[in-house]
Design a protein around this nucleic acid. Structure first.
Lengths: 194, 194
DNA sequence: GTTTTTGTTGATTGACGAGTCAATTAACTT
DNA sequence: AAGTTAATTGACTCGTCAATCAACAAAAAC
């Protein structure tokens, strides 16, 4: 019963199913059939739309990065002043959405992929540069020439805290994560202004 | 040509070959045969000694963690006073050995594995707790009640900087990595003593 | 000098999975 | 109504690979 104009719906369904399945398995060791089944179609159709498995994963990761970017932009429009903007960026990195098991799984596997798959490395680079430039532009008015170092430091803390929360023995504690990074931000500001 | 007492040699060869192959592939998608071949034996022998593939990977990761632990301990005996000890721990985390592509690869895949394989999670927990307790014991005399937060913060920076250096677009810059974390340490100390 | 233990492998099994293809159905066009 | 295009799948190909096993070799033990 083929209807026309289904492509975007199917693609979206496949992307969501990919994220869900990768989250369930905790790794990229999921079959295209499993993904397609969850998306309610045959594996052949998944191949039809995405070509191969890797492209499907990359599309899924692009989707996650898009959502994250939107979250950051959304938080930014509500913020007044550089400091609030920096806090907004930090908070956006630790929303509940970003700590869903599926998303964590996607990120970790994405890191692995970035070692060898050029497109994955490219995407990761975009994420890193965007975060860096966001931090930088609001740090500069506050700490001037220390902005560069502060941005690297904050970026590293964000990634590090995320990693540790995601892989910690207990449930991730978002509030604690945010508190830790906000605290680091205060430290940087205090130093930078001195 | 079986000689006796070969078991430890073979196991060590397999562990090294595993690290090398995982590094080459950038993922755990390496066959036992590839590993065994590199170690100069048949895949059957690898199974004979380690049972299954997963155990072999875990043994490899245990080996990496052991080396890292030794490096930290080695650096610590040379250090006088709490601050020097903290600096030693930081430097040990960014030695050339830890930035070999193979080691980076092992770590990233280890993170993925830690999500689902209990033994991997256990090992990761040991690493995290050891780092934390190392930092804590030397932070306490310097920053007192701030030690706990400072340890979490430094731990996160270490992991975060490592991750970013390992996956950065350019070659890892160990000196810059160390400088960044040492700087964060100074910031913590300056605050903690105030 | 025969038995036992340890080391070793080629060959095999059994399962699985990515990607292709031919064929089918229905909608849109002219 | 005939032709084109999009949607869709079952079945199949081709390769791969983890794990097992039977058998063989050599050293150690008795």
């Amino acid at each position: 019963m083929p209807k026309v104009g289904v492509e975007p719906i199917r693609k979206a369904a496949l992307v969501n199913a990919t994220i869900a399945e990768v989250g369930r398995a905790g790794s990229l060791d999921v079959t295209v059939s499993q993904i397609a089944k969850r998306a309610g179609m045959s594996s052949a159709l998944a191949h039809h739309y995405f070509g191969d498995k890797e492209s499907l994963f990359l599309a899924a990761m692009r989707h996650i990065l898009t959502l994250y970017g939107a979250e950051v932009r959304g938080a930014l429009v509500m913020a007044h002043g550089s400091k609030e903007r920096l806090q907004a960026i930090i908070r956006a990195s630790f929303t509940a959405a970003n700590f869903r098991g599926e998303v964590v799984s996607a990120w970790l596997n994405f890191y692995v992929m970035a070692q060898t798959v050029p497109e994955a490395r490219r995407l990761l680079g975009i994420y890193q540069r965007r975060l860096r430039s966001n931090l930088l532009s609001d740090l500069r008015p506050l700490v001037g020439r220390n902005a560069l170092r502060a941005a690297d430091s904050l970026g590293a803390i964000i990634d590090g805290v995320y990693l540790r929360q995601a892989l910690g023995q207990s449930q991730p504690d978002r509030a604690a994560a945010v508190a830790l990074v906000l605290d680091a931000l205060d430290a940087e500001l205090a130093r930078g202004m001195a």
